[in-house]
Design a protein around this nucleic acid. Structure first.
Lengths: 197, 197
DNA sequence: CCGGCTATTGGACGTTTGCGCAATATCGTC
DNA sequence: GACGATATTGCGCAAACGTCCAATAGCCGG
């Protein structure tokens, strides 16, 4: 197994463990057991557990990000791209992926590498949304004076609502998240109600 | 020291530790050392660490909640109450309090008592905001068809934005949070821009 | 076939964790 | 002043943690 392959294997194992136990309680021994190897091997490829967790989180987060970016690029219009965004971003069966975000945001205070990764990925999501909004404004589909700020608002609203679903379970429903966030985005971008439904 | 006092003392010590180390990495021994007593004493008043953390979190969260509720009750109008809400809710010097929320949301998946407390407190915040909006609608100050949903949207937007400030530091600023969330609330409630500034 | 390099092992080390328990200190009550 | 209840101690226990390291296995160029 070449070093690059082994590195990927370690991260794949770390992702599998994190999916079940959460990022915060994923340990070196868990990852080693998942691979069926020894724990020392992990420290041969990563200098600290912080970096393992950060890299594993990046694998998951970047996968979702690129899936969304890819599907949005294929959309026929900015409005359609936004529909795709809301459909792919809202956590559903992949609750565990959003739980990883919760863990990352909390662990950021204690794990430098996790903080850097989390911030970077969050910025990329905001950038993706900002470009979509700006493109929509350019063709007259949206009305928005500050696409960057609007992107932060829409993204943060989604994060805040999704957080309630994932962390607290039954407080609000996934349907509420979709309905409420699209409604807010329509207001934000000067669309008539129901356009993004 | 009466049992009630001792219980309060334990929670006060737990809060002090959590303020410094975060909720997730607050241990029994930390709390005992903070009080200057033994660790066994904590288990004499709480059945598990989960409950200590949940109760300590509730102390901090409820304190902020009741401060906001009190100040909002004294406001001269619903619009003014909303101004008070935005001023008191947005994390500033009490960053550590919001970090506790981040920890609670993430730990909720692993600690039942923390999840129950977190959910309950979040619901109370939403209720407070919903009642304020409904009161504003009743006197014609706001225009809003669903105060409950609007409350969730405003609260979640604030949570999502504040999360970026606290977890990632320099991504966006506190001023952005205030400006962007008040702008969204004005749009949401049919207010003219700048009313909540 | 051999020598060196690296991937990999398996466990030691020192710390820390939540929790439990027997012993002790303290205090109100008779 | 003795007693019983309970607050409190102090430590033990077993498990788990991240990290490190000496030893081994296996491969690749000579």
């Amino acid at each position: 197994m070449t070093p690059a392959e082994r590195r990927e294997a370690i991260l794949a194992a770390a992702v599998d463990v994190a999916r079940r136990k959460g990022l915060a309680s994923t340990t070196v021994r868990d990852v080693a057991a998942e691979m069926g190897t020894s724990s020392g091997l992990i420290h041969h490829y990563f200098t600290s557990m912080d970096e393992v967790l950060a890299a594993a989180f990046e694998v998951v987060a970047r996968q979702d990000l690129e899936l969304s970016a890819c599907l949005m690029a294929e959309a026929s219009s900015p409005v359609d791209a936004l529909r795709v965004f809301f459909r792919t971003y809202t956590p559903s069966d992949k609750d565990w992926a959003f739980q990883l975000w919760l863990d990352a945001w909390a662990e950021a205070a204690r794990r430098p590498a996790v903080q850097a990764t989390s911030r970077r990925l969050n910025l990329e999501w905001q950038g993706l949304l900002e470009r979509t909004i700006a493109a929509g404004v350019a063709v007259g589909a949206f009305r928005c004076t500050d696409p960057g700020a609007a992107a932060w608002r829409i993204l943060s609203l989604l994060d805040g609502l999704a957080l309630q679903v994932v962390a607290h379970g039954t407080t609000i429903s996934r349907d509420d998240v979709v309905a409420w966030s699209t409604a807010a985005a329509e207001r934000e971008l000067g669309l008539t109600a129901g356009t993004l439904g």
